[in-house]
Computed example of a mutant assay.
Amino acid sequence: MRTLPPPRVPGRYRIELVCLGNICRSPTAHVVLESHLADAGLDDRVEVTSSGTGGWHVGNPMDDRAAATLAAAGYDPTRHRARQYDDARPGAYDVVLVMDMANLADVGGRAERIGLFRDLDPVDPGAEVPDPYYGGADGFEEVLAMVERTSDAIVAALQPLLDDPQDRA
Rank of each mutant, 00 (worst) to 15 (best):
N22D: 10
Q84W: 06
V48Y: 01
D76V: 00
V31T: 08
R149I: 09
A72I: 00
R25M: 02
A92C: 02
G55W: 11
L158H: 03
A29V: 02
E16A: 14
V96E: 04
G54I: 01
G108P: 02
T69E: 03
M99E: 04
P125G: 01
D131H: 08
Q84T: 06
L162A: 04
A127C: 10
D138M: 04
M99A: 15
G11I: 12
D163T: 11
A111D: 10
G139A: 04
L116V: 02
P6W: 12
S151C: 11
E148K: 13
N22R: 00
R113S: 07
L37G: 07
Y134R: 00
D124E: 09
A111C: 03
A153W: 04
T3S: 13
D152F: 04
C24A: 06
G108L: 00
L33R: 10
Y133P: 01
D163I: 14
V123F: 07
A92T: 08
P10F: 04
P160E: 15
R2N: 11
D43Q: 11
Y75N: 08
D138T: 15
A145E: 15
A40C: 13
M146V: 08
V98I: 03
Y85K: 07
F140A: 02
N103L: 04
D131F: 11
P160T: 01
A29K: 00
H80W: 11
L120T: 10
D44N: 07
R65G: 01
D100G: 07
V95I: 15
E47N: 10
M99T: 07
S35C: 07
A137D: 08
R83Y: 04
S50G: 05
A157F: 08
L33H: 06
D131Q: 03
R14A: 10
P90H: 00
N22M: 06
C19M: 02
A38V: 00
S151E: 00
R2F: 11
E142Q: 12
I23P: 02
D44E: 14
A72F: 01
Y93K: 00
